[in-house]
């Protein structure tokens, strides 16, 4: 238990509402663009400016407060708990997509092929009896369904680029841990080098992923529209890629703060929060590699 004397409560917060207004504008703009209305662009750009300005100013305030010693141990614990629960919410978000993959692959696709009742199964007959291509649909993976949505495609193999990406991300998990040790031991030069290494590996991963997507779209016929396999493949790896992008960006911000002399061996929550996030992204990739690419 703590003394409350110095729990820091900011007296006002201008930036949250700026970020919120920006986010809403971006989303409304995107919605308009999806509906084919070009005036969504203005909302998208204006909103982005709001978000960038709002977040920059907000995080700037926080880092100034942190560096000037306004956050006591209890505040630090609040931030740690907050970050941990945020990561838990991300776990559940990915769990939903993994759940969709599991459900379609092991339940829906076999049922579509008539399992659990054979050709006599009412829904099977009802849905597919009249469809010539679907009649002899057999359960298999990968698949684009009895309607062969998206046409012919090839499966993304695990060996090759995905394996290389696994090694890249696992290595980056090692380098960020080394950076953390360097920070704790107050070896600033090594800290910077390990951080640069981590960021470089993150960028390398994204380049490989971009190449893989390009290859899939142009040469393998594997697109977002390639039935349930393409849907689950691109949504899972795509959201992971977005998280790596965000993680890399956050690592850059941390590096910037390191160059400005921020963080001390006993006060560096922001660094640790980003490191946890990076490890989380690592673990998701391992699951992706095993479940999506390999199995």
């Amino acid at each position: 238990m703590w003394s409350h004397d110095s729990y820091y409560v900011p007296s006002k917060a201008v930036w949250p509402v700026v970020v919120v207004a920006g986010t809403t504008s971006v989303l409304a703009g995107l919605a308009n663009l999806i509906n084919g209305l070009s005036d969504g662009k203005l909302m998208l750009y204006a909103g982005s400016v709001f978000i960038v300005v709002g977040l920059t100013a907000w995080f700037r305030d926080q880092s100034i407060e942190s560096e000037s010693g306004k956050y006591n141990k209890q505040v630090d614990i609040s931030y740690r708990m907050g970050m941990a629960w945020f990561i838990f919410s991300e776990v559940m978000f990915f769990a939903a997509f993994f759940g969709a993959l599991f459900y379609t692959r092991y339940l829906a696709v076999p049922w579509l092929a008539g399992e659990g009742g054979g050709p006599g199964l009412f829904t099977f007959d009802f849905l597919w009896d009249a469809v010539a291509t679907a009649k002899d649909y057999t359960s298999s993976w990968p698949t684009n369904g009895p309607g062969q949505v998206g046409g012919h495609f090839e499966k993304m193999e695990a060996l090759g680029l995905p394996l290389a990406n696994t090694i890249i991300l696992l290595t980056s998990g090692y380098t960020i841990t080394m950076a953390h040790h360097a920070l704790i031991d107050d070896r600033r030069k090594q800290l910077k080098l390990w951080m640069i290494a981590t960021i470089s590996l993150g960028i390398l991963f994204l380049i490989c992923q971009g190449y893989e997507y390009h290859h899939a779209y142009t040469e393998m016929g594997l697109t977002l529209g390639a039935g349930i396999y393409g849907s689950t493949f691109f949504m899972l790896t795509g959201f992971h890629g977005l998280h790596v992008t965000l993680g890399t960006f956050m690592l850059c911000m941390i590096l910037l703060r390191i160059y400005r002399g921020h963080f001390s061996p006993d006060n560096h929550f922001a660094f640790e929060g980003v490191a946890w996030y990076w490890h989380f992204v690592d673990v998701v990739w391992l699951l992706l590699f095993v479940i999506v690419y390999w199995m």
């Binding site: 459900y103 684009n144 309607g147 949505v149 977002l224 396999y229």
Partner: peptide
């Protein structure tokens, strides 16, 4: 965006 999560023709449900 053309995905098939809930489209039985594409293997979804």
């Amino acid at each position: 965006f053309g995905t098939s999560f809930f489209n039985a023709a594409g293997g979804g449900d």
